[in-house]
């Protein structure tokens, strides 16, 4: 049996998406086949709309559909605090935590020589003109070796400019038990302990 070319094409395109294996792509294709035409058209529409309307903010490289992103355009955000993250998804994660009211800077990656990503491939240099003395820059890249290397690299660049640099805390996740933490994290949680007596 030969499958209809338009079905094959659909399965192939779906299986290119991250996290969707060939089996799920096939299941998804059959699911989509069963849906009413309007639903498919709406899905295709939002795909095209999103691609047409979204771009990166020229200041912080967050995703936006406006001239400036919603954070950069909001004067009530703390202007002397910039949180540097790897990806636009990290902005959403931090916003959801509700603990942050400063600005962002999205690198769109981490330094990883073996993957051919040097500092020049990231939105790294564009951070420097945003800094003024007295500002605080929070390095919130991941806690992998590459994320740590990117943070250290940034620290060297930023320090001479007179901004305060800080790094998000390493430690135990909330709700965790010590015995399920790995040794490295546990070591960092101990050495990074915080005084709670005045």
């Amino acid at each position: 049996m030969k499958y209809p070319p338009s079905l094959v094409a659909l399965i192939r395109e779906l299986s290119r998406l991250p996290g969707i294996g060939p089996k799920s792509a096939q299941r998804l294709a059959f699911y989509l086949f069963e849906q009413p035409r309007e639903d498919i058209e709406r899905l295709a529409g939002v795909l095209l709309d999103a691609k047409r309307e979204l771009h990166t903010c020229p200041v912080c490289f967050n995703i936006t559909d406006a001239e400036l992103c919603d954070v950069c355009a909001d004067p009530s955000r703390q202007q002397n605090l910039i949180c540097v993250v790897e990806e636009p998804g990290d902005v959403i994660a931090i916003e959801k935590s509700g603990e942050y009211s400063g600005l962002y800077h999205v690198l769109h990656g981490v330094i990883s020589p073996m993957n051919g990503v040097g500092p020049d491939k990231l939105h790294l240099k564009a951070l420097l003109p945003r800094l003024t003395p007295g500002m605080e820059v929070i390095l919130a890249t991941g806690t992998t070796v590459e994320g740590e290397a990117t943070a250290m690299y940034l620290q060297r660049l930023i320090e001479p400019l007179g901004a305060t640099v800080s790094r998000i805390a390493y430690g135990l996740p909330v709700g965790g038990a010590l015995e399920y933490a790995d040794e490295v994290t546990l070591g960092r949680a101990l050495s990074g302990r915080q005084r709670i007596t005045k």
Binding site: I111, P113, V145, E148, A149, A151, M152, Y153, R156
Partner: peptide
């Protein structure tokens, strides 16, 4: 090995 002068 995360230090900039060692990482690459």
């Amino acid at each position: 090995l995360s230090e900039p002068e060692r990482h690459p």
